[in-house]
Design a protein around this nucleic acid. Structure first.
Lengths: 133, 133
DNA sequence: CAGCATCCTATGCGATACTG
DNA sequence: CAGTATCGCATAGGATGCTG
């Protein structure tokens, strides 16, 4: 890690790079959490409707149970989703998106749509790059 | 890796999860590349104006030379930025955003702005979560 | 100036087994 | 059903040294 420098960062913010990950660079502090392998996928699912734990497992069968738990916890911690436990036997737990989560998903879904729309152009760019290299 | 299952994924796309990273899930294929530690930061810099290699180093002094090179190559390969070599002595290289990069940065910058605007709410949510745990 | 090659570490993530 | 606890690996990323 470098010395105590300050650099212009995301959206014109200055960030103390000696403490890069500790939350003083606001944009990175937020982006870090939603850039995990499963975060956006789960956000997209829960943007549709609430889901129970097992439902999410079946919806995304290739997520490990460990990462499902962990990702849900992180999303909950950041305030994007709520977790409600129903004291049945055996217990059931429902996850639902919060208003904050929905307000994030608004611009986020635009990026996802862009990715879908432009996947062809990107694949083409890769072919061109790899051919000329 | 799991068996050959297909699940509904991003933006309603189906993805063969047995080959998850190989590009058959369009959204993930695109998002993977821009979710690196430095990608969005460099995109934001180059959205302002073209930069030379050394300028980017000085702008983001805490990026390692290795990651600057690598991230720029990935962004170039996906078609977001162009690389122009000026045959001076010693050589100088300029990076500039392409139209594709600019069209990506449009929705992407909305997410970055959202992150900046809502950083306080997220930090508060974390405090609440950690207190109740 | 703008890189490439090498080594090394941190950690994100998967696999497996166990529990209230 | 909805988790927790361990272990292990693959890879993202940092540090350092060399080059056209």
């Amino acid at each position: 890690m470098n010395a105590n420098v300050r650099v212009p960062q995301f959206a014109g913010q200055e960030c103390d790079t000696s403490n890069w990950d500790a939350g003083n660079c606001p944009v990175r502090d937020v982006i870090n959490q939603i850039s995990g392998k499963w975060s956006t996928l789960l956000l997209q699912a829960l943007a549709q409707r609430p889901y129970r734990f097992g439902e999410l497992r079946r919806l995304v069968p290739d997520i490990s149970q460990r990462m499902l738990t962990q990702t849900l916890r992180e999303l909950q911690r950041d305030g994007y989703i709520d977790r409600e436990v129903f004291p049945t036997k055996p217990p059931s737990v429902e996850y639902r998106m919060t208003d904050l989560g929905r307000s994030l998903f608004l611009p986020l879904s635009q990026v996802l749509s862009w990715a879908e729309d432009n996947h062809g152009a990107i694949k083409a760019a890769r072919v061109r790059f790899d051919a000329s290299a």
